[in-house]
């Protein structure tokens, strides 16, 4: 029977490998390869996702998790206003004399501590004159005024007793992904 060129090449390669490598050495290499393979993402989607996870936004790359009176605190990635944390309030509580609006806009920020995306409700405190401290502007996921649901320039005192703006909170809603 006539043998194909491919068959001849295959046989030659296999014999050469068999002559140069011991069986134990081949098994060790194969074992190491099998165990190490999951550590190296091979699929393009996996590689792209891994790259994205490390990328974040300009804000998240410079964000910190310790000082909630600074504009680069991680939850302020989409805030536009004066921080309630600088005005006698907190992340989840309005300063005395003002009331939380029942409405807000909800965006998401990456927490540098775990590189995961969290939903943040930007809720205004209303009913007192503006607190002139810690004015911050974050624009992650904020949309123009013609998409008001995600616009951070609106006074989100809709539904409150008064439209008088005092300050803004950044309430943690939950883990987005």
């Amino acid at each position: 029977m006539k043998r194909l060129l491919v068959d001849n090449l295959g046989e030659r390669l296999t014999r050469r490998l068999a002559g140069r490598l011991s069986r134990r050495s081949a098994l060790a290499r194969l074992g190491a390869l099998l165990v190490a393979a999951p550590a190296f993402p091979l699929l393009p989607v996996q590689r792209a996702r891994a790259a994205d996870e490390g990328k974040g936004t300009d804000f998240s790359r410079a964000a910190q998790t310790d000082d909630n009176t600074a504009c680069n605190y991680w939850r302020y990635c989409g805030i536009d206003g004066n921080l309630c944390a600088c005005c006698g309030g907190g992340m989840h509580s309005c300063p005395p004399g003002s009331q939380p609006s029942p409405t807000s806009w909800i965006g998401s920020c990456i927490n540098p501590a775990d590189q995961r995306s969290y939903l943040i409700a930007y809720r205004d405190c209303c009913g007192a004159s503006i607190c002139p401290k810690c004015s911050c502007l974050g624009t992650d996921h904020a949309m123009p005024i013609y998409r008001p649901q995600a616009n951070n320039h609106i006074i989100w005192c809709i539904g409150a007793n008064t439209f008088e703006y005092h300050c803004s909170m950044a309430i943690l809603v939950g883990l987005a992904e």
Partner: peptide, 22 residues
């Protein structure tokens, strides 16, 4: 998540909002 980011700001995180407004 999609409800919260698309609707929940006005309609409320738990679906409760300001009566008469939203």
């Amino acid at each position: 998540v999609a409800y919260l980011t698309s609707c929940g700001g006005c309609h409320g995180i738990e679906g409760r909002s300001a009566p008469g407004s939203v």
